[in-house]
């Protein structure tokens, strides 16, 4: 366990070296969210309404999406791809460390600084649009929301991990990475709440794992999910399934790596 704590600490320090880029990234995302909040205000101001959402629910949805996008979603596959392609993977073959656990730790620690910043930024935006934030009526909702977000974090990481492993076989993984990113953007509910989709698309989205990353946690926060426990169970099944897939892909990848070398 201690080795992962050290990995956590060292990577955290490493990511602090890039604090300026992180600040810049958050600024960019803040810009994006601010524009969307202007958009919703304008739409509701003209007398429009998006499905079952009130203006404050819509504002809250995007404010939470803003936080979840940084805290829950993972972008670690870029590093994994470089790692494998540049031959650093050899170091892992000879060290007593679990590759999955290593990257999970890197993923967590890499987010720490970003999380602090994003919460500050969200609080800042929250102050401006304060009256429009829809807080849960039942305090227990906060706990279920945190559990849901935690499950989302694990699942998001596993998906990224699998994509990164494609680098064992292909040089150009970029396209797959973007595919996952777009799938998340669309089917996780980052772009729009999934229940605003046309029925057929909403059905598809409800059968995919991506909804547990963004949409379901936010719905739980907005108290629009009737049975959070059933959601947890479903997310858990996905987590186990994708974990087994990742193990299998990694094992095949190692065989391939040993055969081809790098």
């Amino acid at each position: 366990m201690r080795k992962y704590l050290t990995v956590f600490r060292v990577n955290w320090q490493n990511s602090l070296q890039y604090r300026a880029p992180t600040v810049i990234y958050i600024l960019g995302y803040t810009l994006y969210i601010s524009v969307l909040l202007f958009l919703w205000t304008a739409i509701y101001g003209e007398g429009g309404r998006m499905g079952p959402y009130s203006l404050s629910e819509m504002m809250t949805y995007y404010l939470l999406q803003f936080v979840i996008n940084s805290v829950v979603l993972s972008y670690v596959s870029w590093e994994i791809i470089d790692h494998i392609r540049e031959g650093f993977f050899s170091h892992f073959l000879v060290k007593p460390i679990n590759y999955f656990a290593y990257w999970f730790t890197i993923n967590l620690s890499g987010k720490l600084f970003e999380t602090v910043l994003i919460l500050l930024a969200a609080a800042g935006i929250g102050l401006v649009v304060g009256p429009h934030v829809a807080f849960p009526s039942d305090p227990r909702t906060y706990a279920t929301f945190l559990v849901a977000a935690g499950l989302g974090l694990v699942l998001a990481f596993e998906l990224e991990f699998c994509i990164g492993l494609i680098a064992f076989w292909l040089i150009q993984v970029r396209v797959f990475k973007y595919m996952l990113q777009y799938a998340v953007f669309f089917f996780a509910g980052t772009l729009l709440p999934l229940d605003l989709f046309p029925r057929a698309l909403a059905e598809v989205a409800a059968r995919l794992p991506f909804q547990y990353l963004v949409f379901v946690p936010i719905q739980i926060f907005l108290e629009k999910r009737p049975a959070p426990l059933a959601d947890f169970a479903a997310a858990g099944v996905w987590i186990v399934a994708v974990y087994l897939l990742a193990r299998w892909v990694l094992a095949r990848g190692i065989v391939r790596y040993e055969a081809v070398g790098n």
Partner: peptide
């Protein structure tokens, strides 16, 4: 200058 350790990183913030 980069000071070593966790405290150094925090301080250098």
């Amino acid at each position: 200058k980069k000071e070593p350790g966790l405290k150094g990183s925090l301080k250098s913030l």
